[in-house]
Amino acid sequence: MRARLVLTGLLATTALTLTGCGTQDNASSTGAETASPTASGTSTPARSGSGTTAVPEALRFTGTTVDGKPFDAATLAGKPTVLWFWAPWCPTCKAQGPETAKVATEFQGKANVIGVAGLDKRQAMQDFVSDTEVGSFPNLSDEAGDIWKKFEITQQSFYVVLDKDGKTVFTGSLPAGKGLADKIRPLVG
């Protein structure tokens, strides 16, 4: 059994490493949950710090921002959330940066936008955030790929949109981030 778990983890890591930049645009969903989060070693308690909002399984993870600060996704509970999975060397991700930052500003206080960087080192992630001006919202350094694995992400340049209850309502790539605001707007009404 343990050998099977190790092999599964190794295969998942290999898949993350070998994935092309934005090669799978047909993985979107208009309402059905398509990326079900899996168990992760980065779980958080079932209630947020205030004790009033239940934390859905999708938001039970922790991480570190690209500038080294601790991050607990439980703080996102109760609002729609966009997780944007990107890699610093990905030209498609760079093209999505401005629109993603615009959406984060437009829905500030109503929805969460979180970048989840992977497939490189923290310095490259910091440079990407600075160069693309996406520092107006948190960007996590996921060098080990733990959050990517939790959401079963196998390529960069990928969005996961969760409703206020943590249910996945969209997964996929959005060229230059166009249409992201349209995915969030009905969730904040």
Rank of each mutant, 00 (worst) to 15 (best):
T30F: 15
V188A: 08
T17Q: 08
K94Y: 08
T13I: 08
P138G: 09
V103R: 04
D165K: 02
D67H: 00
R122T: 05
G41L: 01
A124D: 15
A181M: 04
D72R: 00
V169H: 01
D67I: 02
G41P: 05
N139R: 01
A27S: 12
F107C: 01
M125G: 15
G118Q: 13
W86L: 12
S136C: 02
V66Q: 03
G109P: 02
P175T: 00
V113N: 05
M1E: 14
N112D: 15
G9I: 00
Y159C: 09
V113P: 04
F151N: 10
Q108P: 13
R4V: 11
G63Y: 14
G115T: 09
R2V: 12
L16G: 03
T34D: 05
K110P: 09
K102L: 06
S40W: 15
S28D: 14
F137S: 09
V188I: 14
K110N: 03
A87H: 12
L18Q: 15
T168L: 03
T38I: 10
D146G: 05
G49V: 10
A117G: 14
A77V: 03
F137D: 12
G166L: 03
I153L: 13
Q155C: 07
V134R: 00
G166S: 04
G22A: 04
F151K: 09
N139F: 03
V82H: 01
K102F: 05
I114E: 09
G172F: 08
F158I: 06
V161G: 00
D67R: 00
T92K: 14
V103D: 01
L11Y: 12
S29W: 11
D25N: 05
C21P: 06
L16C: 10
S43P: 11
G68H: 11
D127M: 01
A181H: 02
I153T: 03
A77N: 11
D182R: 10
P138R: 01
V113Q: 04
M125R: 02
D25C: 02
A111V: 14
L162D: 13
S40D: 07
V188L: 01
F170E: 08
D165I: 11
A58W: 02
K121P: 10
L11F: 09
T14V: 15
K164L: 03
F158G: 07
F158P: 09
I184E: 05
V160W: 01
K164W: 13
P45F: 14
K167G: 13
F128Q: 12
P45K: 14
K178Q: 13
T154V: 10
K149I: 01
R122H: 04
C93Q: 07
A12C: 07
F85G: 06
I147Q: 08
A95P: 04
A74F: 06
K94R: 14
Q155N: 06
